[in-house]
């Protein structure tokens, strides 16, 4: 069964637990600057928006990669970076219209959300259920898709 990360910004309190969980899982350090999920605060509106890869079907990043270093994990649906193959050309970072593939200058490669192999740490760490990992059939997956479509109309 396909699961997906479902984000409800209205529940986010901006505590950054997700960013720490993500950076620790991905980079072995508590360091929000190395997180693949980011919280964007809107102070005057009083809202915090968690934001990461939606693992969109279109997978612009994957198709733009010149060396097949982004692959589909058939179990989770995640598009994953294969570090050994990534040459660091950054084409995926400009190809992704959601801006969720980022260059990591320390490693010379790109990083993006890989759903932690099917057990996303951000969702586990979120204290308010603003980030949940749910069965894609009955969650806001369609909403995410709508959003993807909105940001990137059909060609």
């Amino acid at each position: 069964m396909q699961m997906s990360l479902v984000i409800d910004a209205n529940k986010c309190t901006g505590c950054l637990q997700c960013e720490m969980a993500c950076s620790y899982e991905g980079e072995g350090v508590f360091n929000p600057t190395k997180s693949r999920i980011k919280i964007f605060p809107f102070h005057e509106e009083g809202i915090f928006v968690p934001y990461t890869c939606t693992q969109c079907d279109e997978a612009w990043c994957m198709h733009a990669c010149p060396v097949e270093a982004i692959v589909l994990n058939k179990t989770t649906g995640a598009k994953e970076i294969v570090n050994d193959l990534c040459v660091g050309c950054k084409v995926c970072t400009i190809a992704c219209p959601f801006g969720t593939v980022n260059y990591n200058a320390d490693s010379g490669k790109v990083i993006k959300c890989d759903l932690c192999g099917g057990d996303p740490e951000c969702a586990k760490a979120c204290p308010t259920d603003a980030i949940t990992y749910q069965d894609a059939n009955w969650t806001g997956y369609d909403k995410m898709k709508d959003y993807a479509a909105k940001a990137m109309p059909a060609k």
Partner: peptide, 12 residues
């Protein structure tokens, strides 16, 4: 280098 893809998203 962070989130640069949104420039494509906004344009396209």
């Amino acid at each position: 280098t962070q989130h640069v893809g949104v420039m494509r998203g906004l344009i396209q």
